[in-house]
Write a protein that binds this DNA or RNA. Sequence first.
RNA 1: CGGGGUGUAGUAUACCGGCAGUACGCCUGCUUUGGGAGCAGGUAGACCGAGUUCGAUUCUCGGCACCCCGACCA
Length: 416
Amino acid sequence: MRQSRLFGKTLREDPKDEVSINAKLLERGGFVYKTMAGVYDYLPLGFRVLRKIESIIREEIDAVGGQELFLTALQPRDRWEKTKRWDALKDIMYQFKDKSGREMGLAATHEEALAEISTRSIFSYRDLPLFVYQIQTKFRDEPRAKSGLIRGREFLMKDLYSFHRDEASLNEFYEKADGAYRSIFKRCGLTAYVTEASGGTFTKQFTHEYQVLSDAGEDWTVYCGHCGYAQNKEISSLKDDDTCPKCGDVMKMARSIEVGNIFKLGTKFSEAFGLLYADEKGEKRPVVMGSYGIGPGRLLGTIVEVHNDERGILWPESISPFRVHLIEIPGKMSPETVKKEAEKMYGDLVAKGAEVLYDDRVGLSAGEKFADADLIGIPWRVVISEKTLEKKGVEVKKRGEKAAIVMKEKDFLKML
RNA sequence: CGGGGUGUAGUAUACCGGCAGUACGCCUGCUUUGGGAGCAGGUAGACCGAGUUCGAUUCUCGGCACCCCGACCA
């Protein structure tokens, strides 16, 4: 991608209406555009990151047997009456009438939809277990959107639902889902603590949350940095500096962002929708369900909150919008030669299949290009200039490291 | 939803009941080119509505938006 053609420009100053680090950096870097409080557009750079996060999620969920589908956001009222959640969710759900007076709403969650649809697909114990998921937009009329991408009114969610004949099968998959989740967060460059938490109004059982330590978070996690044991402060009797009940080390309490959660739903939804299966004796039993959520957009925001410095973002390689940021600095002695070399290397990188953002913009000072590169945060920065021509190589620098080294182009290509 | 704050250009601000100004940014051109360079030219603004007034960005009332704290958060 040529930066001169890139849709979305960097900003020199912080937007005045943002306080959170993730929103400031993402808006300044041209990753997102804010349409309203808690409602952000993804520009090409941000969308590339988002798609990479989604790919990681898909790989891990597919690996535990998930089947991807895509449900509607627009839903009729009567579906929500079955679980009496039309009224229960009225403060958070966008509800309205269409032109003919039918009541409908934008889905804040999809348990009802999936339970209903599943009655046409699950009939027998032979159909179980089953795991389906989607990555789809949710709408919630949050009383207070805040912290940039961390809490929004319109946001993406990966929601996975599992269907089982009994608790044992649910528990078995629950462990697999936990493994997939741990892997997802790790691959996104995050350390997530798995905490026991309250299920809220959703379920009486304990659930598990995945918490990433960050001051931008809304939760408090009591955690053991040694063995990883953690609890949500809401339900924990542990305090700062207490002894870890698992390993005896010292526990700490810190702000954290909930990047995912897993629930055992039981039979609440299957009973409401008549989602029954026949067992070996032909007896009808309610399907046992589980639900598992991750917000890809919130995950993106969390990664920025965790991986940044005073100059900008430091993307983990796994989700960076590009792998290499190639920068040309023309100079005055032989700008044409520098340009030619840069173009050649750009071509070589593209031919090799490397994702590269090529700063071919003219008229900018070296400082401006470096500042933009630091802000955008691509892991590998490669400079081609008069200096590097003299040294017969290219200058390579890792984002976040001070030292740059000059090496042969072909050695860099080999290293990638 | 309770409490607090802020609304003048993209950002930061100034002035004023009588043509809205400055700096930076942004755009164009030229000169530059290793950490946001220089010169010249240009672009762009009073949140919305009602009221008071000869005249409102300024005063009054109402609304809206945004931010912060709290509550809430399948």
